[in-house]
């Protein structure tokens, strides 16, 4: 049974890889090699090896909480916790090997022990949706924001208020803007039903333009008070929040194109999520910034082509 399930998992992974495409696989392989090398280096000395172990375990906890197949596994497998354990051990296996190569046996064993504890966690975090008056101010056409502002309401309000109230600290507003920027990018994670797409009655390029305008305007409105309060206290550094806003506006454009390049009704594309992550990381490494612009250009055409199937009647 377990072998069959792992077989299914490999097939699922294979299908996802096929969806991503050869060029992107090559890019991702390069990134993966860099990550493995980085982890290998971190595993060579203390305390970095411990920090890396903790970070990986935290990622596994997030994965465990977010996974959507728990009910399926619980119904179909008596030993579903054993299934979790095998899967998580396989995921962490390269890092466990690195630890063993560097003779940190006790760390490797501790990690395996921690995985055994994680699989015992049997809860799911249900995000509470807050349907308040604030969301009514968002236009109905911006349904991604309406939805996102409900599911992440508390987080958004907390980050925004902390940024505003502590704006006399130089780092407060930029960090808040960055967090809000990343949250808003995640609003584009899910593909809407095609009925909602067709409801706009627009040709692909006009539709994309409208979506980008909505994203950029709403992000700017949310960030405007933060930006102003930053200018009050640190006017000599006026360019910092403006630059952050600009970066996230560019990322909104990129994320919109990525979303509709891989758009399938009612689903979220792992490839799109991965590429969005690549976009965000690229802005943190100056050398990689041109990559975002190149990909934005590339995905504009891909998004147009993909949307054409649904919106070709509105040219």
């Amino acid at each position: 049974m377990l072998v069959n399930l792992l077989n299914i998992r490999f097939k699922q992974a294979y299908r996802e890889i096929l969806k991503i495409g050869l060029f992107r696989i090559a890019v991702l392989l390069g990134l993966a090699i860099m990550v493995f090398f980085f982890l290998f280096m971190q595993a060579s000395q203390l305390p970095n090896a411990s920090y890396a172990s903790i970070a990986i375990l935290l990622l596994i906890v997030v994965l465990h909480i977010k996974r959507g197949d728990r009910l399926f596994l619980r119904i179909n497998f008596n030993s579903y916790k054993w299934v979790y354990f095998v899967e998580y051990t396989l995921v962490t296996f390269p890092f466990l090997i690195f630890l063993m190569i560097h003779s940190y046996w006790y760390l490797a064993l501790s990690m395996v022990f921690a995985l055994g504890i994680i699989v015992q966690l049997d809860f799911k975090i249900n995000r509470i949706s807050y349907n308040t008056r604030i969301q009514r101010w968002i236009p109905s056409q911006c349904f991604e924001w309406k939805s996102g502002a409900r599911s992440s309401f508390i987080l958004i309000v907390c980050v925004w208020l902390i940024g505003l109230l502590l704006s006399f600290f130089v780092g407060s507003v930029p960090i808040s803007m960055m967090v809000l920027g990343v949250i808003s990018l995640n609003f584009l994670e899910n593909g809407e039903p095609y009925q909602m797409l067709v409801a706009y009655e627009k040709a692909p390029n006009k539709f994309l333009l409208l979506k980008i305008r909505q994203q950029v305007v709403l992000l700017s409105i949310v960030c405007a008070p933060l930006l102003l309060s930053f200018l009050v206290f640190h006017y000599q550094l006026w360019y910092i929040p403006l630059l952050i806003l600009l970066v996230f506006c560019v990322l909104q454009v990129y994320a919109t194109f990525v979303k509709y390049s891989f758009y399938e009704p009612n689903s979220s594309s792992p490839a799109a999520q991965l590429l969005l992550g690549v976009g965000i990381v690229s802005f943190m490494v100056p050398v990689l910034v041109p990559l975002v612009f190149l990909l934005t250009f590339r995905f504009y055409f891909k998004a147009k082509q993909n949307l054409n199937f649904y919106l070709n009647d509105y040219h």
């Binding site: 349904f143 599911s151 067709v198 409801a199």
Partner: peptide, 27 residues
């Protein structure tokens, strides 16, 4: 598509929006 409205067997809706918001998308 300009002349057709289509009801699918199992309708799917975008999460965390209200019924009114969904309907207001259609002009």
């Amino acid at each position: 598509k300009k002349v057709i409205s289509y009801l699918v067997t199992e309708p799917f809706f975008y999460s965390n929006i209200t019924g009114n918001e969904y309907l207001s998308l259609f002009k």
